[in-house]
Computed example of a mutant assay.
Amino acid sequence: MELQSKIYVAGHRGLAGSAIVRRLEKAGHENIVTRTSKELDLRDKTAVYRFFAEQQPEYVFLAAARVGGIVANHTYPVDFLGDNLKIQTNVIEAAYEFGAKKLMFLGSTCIYPKLAPQPLKEEYLLTGALEPTNEPYAIAKIAGIKLCEAYNRQFGTDYVSVMPTNLYGPNDNFDLQSSHVLPALLRKFHEAKESSKPSVEIWGTGTPRREFLHADDLADACVFLMNNYSGSEIVNIGVGDDIAIKDLAELIGRIVGYEGEIVYDTTKPDGTPRKLVDTTKINELGWSASIPLEDGVRSAYAWFKEQYAVNPVN
């Protein structure tokens, strides 16, 4: 990407998209195009085609998606499957129709089979059954990967698919009904401390292990890959290390300064037992994560407190 190249970041207000915009601006890119969901409904094919016809972006980061945790995925399977299929199909088709030079599709490590060997290698895609609690979202993401692959094979496009692990950071979702585990825990512990609650309840046993990638590390990887990688083979983006939910909860408790009890509701689902990605491929390409988990969580908590004080989360 040249500094003057026109770059469209779909989903620029989200966790991943906003980090990509920050990273591009830091690198000196000024010709960045964005639209809010109110300004451009990516589920509307006519509107998407009109936007691409008018703007003619050269590079596209497709970070827009309906996302959420176990509760949201379980409650709204139609939305997670249908909306994501529409969003990604419309943007990928329009990128081709209006001559974008390159597109990056952001998937998710939930595309891998529930019981795949650890760490998760890129070639494990479609080798087993998915985790049921987020299957609709995962199927939509797999369809996006395959659509990019199909365009590359049939039309010689340069569409790249990347699979980030669990993300956290500025502009995260802290709604307890739809957020992922790390921001949900930050909010729970913060509110428990503020109200002097004697205990914090956490879903599951605390034994599942998860890998967490700061959004700024993700953005750095995405810009690196956009500039340095072409191919239909997917690329994992992660830190190459994971932590038990129990240990994460204790870390967050310390950072927040909460001194009460942590209670585990073992009647609630744990989800996938472990989800650690193999980062060999991206490491060999020349990129690795640089933000330690504790440092990242401290900065995420500082951002949450600043935003929460101004605009309390529902």
Rank of each mutant, 00 (worst) to 15 (best):
P273I: 02
G68V: 09
N228F: 06
P77W: 11
P273N: 06
G238H: 01
L167G: 02
P269E: 03
F61I: 06
Q56W: 08
V256D: 01
I282D: 00
D172N: 14
Y112H: 07
R187P: 14
E250R: 08
I282E: 00
V21M: 03
V181T: 09
D41K: 15
A63M: 10
D247P: 03
R153E: 11
F155C: 10
Y59C: 10
A47T: 12
T272S: 11
G99E: 12
Y112P: 04
E93N: 15
I92S: 04
V160G: 01
N152M: 07
V200G: 02
A150S: 08
A192T: 04
Q55Y: 13
M163L: 09
V160T: 11
T36E: 05
H12Y: 15
L125A: 08
R298N: 04
G14R: 00
T127E: 12
W203Q: 12
V310D: 10
Q4L: 11
P292N: 00
V200N: 02
P269C: 07
T46L: 11
D220W: 09
K26Q: 15
P198G: 14
K101H: 15
E58Y: 13
R209Y: 11
E294R: 07
D79G: 07
Y59F: 15
T157Q: 14
D220R: 05
Y49A: 13
E250H: 08
L276T: 09
H12L: 08
I245Q: 03
S179L: 02
L62P: 04
T89M: 12
V263F: 14
I142H: 02
D247R: 03
E261L: 05
G231W: 07
I234D: 06
E135H: 07
A116C: 12
I7M: 07
E131V: 09
P208M: 05
T89V: 11
Y96W: 14
P273K: 04
E191A: 09
L176I: 12
L15N: 11
L213S: 00
G253C: 05
S108P: 05
E30H: 09
Q307P: 05
L81S: 12
H190D: 11
L186R: 02
L126S: 13
Y168T: 03
P119W: 02
P269F: 02
T165I: 08
M226D: 03
L81N: 05
I291E: 00
P198R: 09
G169H: 01
P198Q: 11
C222L: 14
K38H: 13
Y159V: 09
L3A: 15
S178K: 15
G238F: 01
H214A: 06
H29L: 08
K45N: 15
L24P: 02
R153Y: 13
I111K: 00
A63D: 09
L218F: 14
M163I: 05
C148E: 03
I252L: 01
S178T: 15
T279Y: 03
K281E: 05
K26D: 15
S196V: 13
A184F: 03
E211G: 01
G253K: 13
P132W: 05
Y151I: 06
A184W: 00
R210M: 08
A72G: 04
A19W: 00
I282S: 00
L42G: 03
E25C: 11
A302Y: 03
I252K: 00
L182A: 11
D172G: 15
S199Q: 11
S37R: 14
